[in-house]
Simulated scan of single mutants.
Amino acid sequence: MRTKQHPVSHLFEVSLYFQQIVFVGVIVLCLFSIISPPIALLSGVVLVNVFGNPFLAFNHKAITFLLQFSVVGLGFGMNASSAISAGKEGFLLTVFSIFSTLVFGTLLGKWLKTEKKTSHLISCGTAICGGSAIAAIAPVIKSNENQTSVALGVIFILNAIALFAFPLIGHQLDLSQKEFGLWCAISIHDTSSVVGAANKYGAEALQIATTVKLAMALWIIPISIFTAVVFKNKNSKIRIPYFIGLFILAMLLNTYIPATAIVAPHIVGIAKIGLTITLFLIGATLNLNTLKSVGVKPLLQGVFLWIFIAGLGLVSILYLG
């Protein structure tokens, strides 16, 4: 005999089914480039707060894979010589910004009395490459789930703001493609938002920003070693961002193998779609619970640290570059 389904249970199933349809529908819009990266991010924020995220369990893995895939794909649209030139020009600024951010972040954390491990994760995320740096540093300092999620929440909130604010500020200040590319690579936390903002500004800005940001990501290794010493965790496993090697390989193929020109534009197009979906998924993590769980002190530390590095980077590029 067939058991009669409870009305509440049936309603929950219908609700979940509707959530899945809406969620997949936005991803389809991203696939056909109907919505831009900033709108995709905003759509994720709106959907998760109105309907919820039916695929939350898979979100983190999907973001990680799609971001790495997209970055490698963007390498097929870049020239190695130009990238090396951009990397050289941004090297000293990169080193200065990373260490000044870590020092100022440590002082801010002590002043605001932010929990030590959370403070360090926010500082590393701001200094190097956002969520990727936090994911790499978290096991080194053996942070718990709450400490890691708070730091990620701060970074993702500020990334969402940066994606909209930086291109507007860049145009208001009449920054060149080169200046904007350097500035957003130094000042925006996550690679996804750096690429999204730079892509909106122009092709040259995109190449400079992506190259400089990925060069910054390599600092995960020495900073992880330094962190292990400071936190006295000798047995910590250090994560190496191997996908950066694939990005360099894609760039070399595009520069020195003429046959690559046949498929390169299509790969770049797919990579940009992947980036748009990534930003949508990041937006879909920013629900009200995330905002509430962050807390005032960590958020203040993130904001002050962000203003510090964005202001310092801008002054350095405009007056010392």
Rank of each mutant, 00 (worst) to 15 (best):
V303F: 12
F304W: 09
G274N: 03
Y17S: 15
L299M: 14
F280L: 10
F55K: 13
I248K: 02
F58T: 12
F104K: 00
F12E: 15
K272H: 10
L11N: 07
A261W: 04
E13M: 12
N79E: 14
I188K: 00
S149G: 08
G109T: 02
I238Y: 01
E204W: 03
V195N: 01
Q19P: 05
I273T: 15
G269P: 03
L41F: 11
A271M: 11
K292D: 01
Q147C: 08
N159Q: 06
H60V: 13
G313N: 04
I188W: 01
V26R: 04
E13K: 13
G274L: 06
F32E: 07
L67I: 11
V296Q: 08
E89F: 08
A259M: 13
G44F: 07
I223K: 00
V28H: 03
L74M: 15
Q68W: 02
A127H: 01
F231P: 03
G90K: 02
A284H: 04
A133G: 05
E204L: 13
V8T: 09
T290V: 14
L246S: 10
Q172K: 13
L42E: 09
N159K: 00
N53P: 09
I221R: 05
L102W: 01
A80L: 15
G311I: 09
E145Q: 14
V46T: 10
M216A: 07
G153C: 07
L286W: 06
A127S: 09
F104M: 12
Q20A: 15
S176V: 11
V46R: 02
F51V: 13
P7L: 10
M251E: 06
I220H: 00
L206E: 08
